[in-house]
């Protein structure tokens, strides 16, 4: 079985977001970069499949120089190969999906795993787009995955519960929290990864379909009000305020 795991490098989730001088991008000063948490789950799932039934795992990322660090970590975790595709189009999910599809096409991957969304862009779109571009099945926002010979069964979050999806391989599966608990790389893995090569490619010319024109911070919420009095008085005044002032109940 051949598995492609697509990883995105994102700002740490505790990052305080600042807008850059151009008014439309993230100020990357002081940003700590991590592998998107859902992509770590995709990687973990690939490693578990490799361990249980044997698989060749290729890690890929669309990024820049600093993204090598993320791929080095993927190798340390157990990926067999790592590919960096340089591109400045990381803001457009369709551009990223096209770059990944161009790489994956003709390489006969049975399974493509990635996180259901990458922190930052928050489109949650690359997985379904990649599935469409490759003409394969998808299961998006998956919390459970079982593989057959040429089939898969997956559970995904839906309104008020979970959907069970059945489909054929090859497929694109996007990971949601609950799928597994990602491991840390072993010392042996980290040392071994230093000797493994990272293949570097340039993305072909890709036209973007959407771009950010301005990035702003949300307006500060107006100063709130602390309620006074005994518990019973506070509870009663809250209900009156919600009903008569805020009019939300």
């Amino acid at each position: 079985m051949k598995i492609l795991v697509a990883l995105k490098q994102v700002p740490d989730t505790e990052t305080k977001i600042k807008v850059a001088a151009d008014g439309k991008s993230l100020d990357a000063t002081d940003v700590k970069w991590i592998t998107s948490p859902y992509d770590e789950m995709a990687m973990e799932e690939a490693l578990r499949i490799k361990e249980s039934r044997g698989a060749e795992v290729v890690a890929i990322s669309v990024g820049e120089d600093r993204t090598r660090e993320l791929l080095r970590n993927a190798l340390a975790l157990g990926a067999d190969a790592a590919v960096l595709i340089r591109s400045a189009e990381a803001g457009d999910p369709l551009a990223v999906a096209r770059i990944l599809a161009d790489f994956a096409r003709d390489k006969s991957f049975d399974l493509i795993l990635l996180g259901h969304t990458g922190f930052g862009g928050d489109h949650g779109a690359v997985g379904p787009m990649l599935a469409e571009l490759l003409g394969v099945a998808q299961a998006h926002v998956v919390t459970r995955l079982e593989l057959g010979e040429d089939t898969f069964r997956a559970e995904r979050e839906a309104e008020g519960g979970f959907e069970r999806i059945e489909g054929s391989l090859p497929a694109v599966i996007t990971a949601q929290r609950g799928l597994n608990e990602p491991r840390y790389p072993s010392l042996k893995g980290i040392i071994g990864a230093k000797k493994k090569p990272i293949e570097e490619l340039e993305a072909g010319p890709i036209e973007s379909t959407i771009r950010v024109s301005t990035l702003t911070l949300p307006p500060a919420r107006p100063e709130g009000r602390k309620l006074e009095g005994s518990a019973a008085v506070q509870a009663e005044s809250l209900i009156q305020l919600l009903r008569n002032e805020a009019k939300v109940i």
Partner: peptide, 17 residues
């Protein structure tokens, strides 16, 4: 207009397609 970074920022987006 849409949230980015889980609502820590908002982006105005232009489509070119």
């Amino acid at each position: 207009t849409r949230p980015m970074f889980a609502g820590k920022a908002f982006a105005d987006c232009e489509f070119t397609s």
